[in-house]
Simulated assay, not measured.
Amino acid sequence: MFFPCESIVLRTTAPIEIIDITTLVQTRFQGYGIVQGQVTLFSPHTTAFVCLNEKEPMLQRDMLDFLHRLVPADSDFRHNRDPVDGRLNAHSHLLGLLMTASQIIPVADGRLLLGGWQSIFFIELDGPRDERRLLMQVSGEQ
């Protein structure tokens, strides 16, 4: 059984931000009563993504530092010379080349099968933004 896509609305507060959405996704998922199946998460943005990784404060700071160093926002990018939406966000699009817009998480015995160290993160690369959306679709057997 497939359920309709559900929107998860998020607000971001920093230019680059890592938001732990694990509890939010688990809470929403529980409402479906799925025993076996999967949850698909999809970011319909070109500068915001979803990933699985470890939630550890020092590692998260390392991740942010890495992203800032990898593609500095103040570099001279052609996209920023005449931005179509007024945002100087070429660095955000370039960082997005290394990320994925979706994740599929298996479900067994009514639980998301995340690894022991895995959390679900929404990664903002072009914030802050008043509204970002993450689409969630649940499928499986009740």
Rank of each mutant, 00 (worst) to 15 (best):
G127N: 06
D85L: 04
R111W: 09
I19V: 15
V39P: 02
T13A: 08
D130C: 09
I34S: 03
F77T: 02
G96D: 00
T22F: 14
S75K: 07
S119I: 08
E6W: 13
G140P: 01
V138H: 03
V138K: 02
H91S: 12
E6Q: 15
G140W: 05
E131H: 11
F122G: 00
D65E: 13
R133C: 12
S92E: 01
M99G: 00
R61Q: 15
I123Q: 05
G33V: 13
V50T: 04
I16Q: 06
I21D: 08
V138R: 04
D126V: 08
F29A: 03
G86N: 03
D65V: 10
H91Y: 14
L67P: 02
P15N: 08
Q60V: 13
G33M: 11
F121L: 07
T12D: 05
P15I: 04
H68C: 09
G115Y: 13
G37Q: 01
A108M: 14
D126G: 04
A73W: 03
T13I: 08
F49R: 00
T46C: 03
P83M: 07
S7V: 14
R69I: 08
T13Q: 09
H93C: 01
P15R: 08
L134W: 04
M99F: 05
D126H: 04
L98N: 01
L52P: 02
N53S: 15
L135I: 06
S75H: 09
G115W: 13
L113V: 10
L94C: 00
F42V: 04
H68M: 08
S43W: 09
T22D: 14
M1W: 12
I123G: 02
F66E: 00
E54A: 11
D82K: 09
S139G: 14
P57E: 05
A14W: 06
D130H: 12
L135T: 06
F3M: 12
P83Y: 05
L94Q: 03
Q26C: 13
D109W: 01
G115V: 05
S139D: 10
V39W: 02
R78L: 11
R87E: 15
C51I: 13
T27F: 09
V25F: 03
F2H: 14
G31T: 14
L97F: 01
I104N: 12
S7G: 11
L67G: 00
P72G: 06
E124K: 07
N80H: 10
F49Q: 01
G96T: 02
E6V: 15
S43M: 06
T100M: 08
A73L: 06
A90Q: 02
R111P: 06
G33H: 10
P15T: 10
V84W: 08
S43R: 03
I16S: 02
Q118L: 11
L70E: 00
C51D: 09
E54G: 06
L112C: 10
S7P: 09
F49D: 01
M99Q: 04
L41N: 02
A48R: 05
H79Y: 09
M58I: 13
C51F: 11
L70S: 01
D82L: 09
L52I: 10
M136H: 04
F77Q: 01
P4L: 10
F122P: 01
M58P: 01
E17R: 07
I21A: 09
L112N: 08
T100F: 05
L67R: 00
H91C: 07
L134P: 00
D65L: 13
